[in-house]
Amino acid sequence: MKYCVTNCHFTKNRRFCHNIGTPDGEMRLRTAHQLTVDNDGVLDTIALGRVVSRATIVREICHHLAPYQVGEKPINGATVIAKDLTIDSLAIMDMVMELEDRFDVSIPMNVIAEIHTVDQLADTIQDLRAR
């Protein structure tokens, strides 16, 4: 897993993470439902707000799907995940588990079965976050 956050552990049901910064200063590498930043050596936990832009969700999904891209055809909202890419059904479910933890939602397996496109997956995540 390329974007795994290291040094994670659980204390009283809260996940504390280190090492999520990137060389360019952007906070892109986030897999936990809460983000922790190193602040003068003291760990602060910033809860991910309930409102996450749809663009952020789509970007995150596309990022997870990048290794399965076919040729130069870009991955976007209309991409049919199981058809347009080289990803198999098990890898889709594993990716969903990563997204679940990233956005702090649980997507039931029967719902996953009905999702075909990146847009549908993003909508599902957004709907579940709104609950």
Partner: peptide, 9 residues
């Protein structure tokens, strides 16, 4: 911990 997160949700 992965189970914990899902049961919490």
């Amino acid at each position: 911990s992965s189970l914990d997160a899902r049961l919490r949700r």
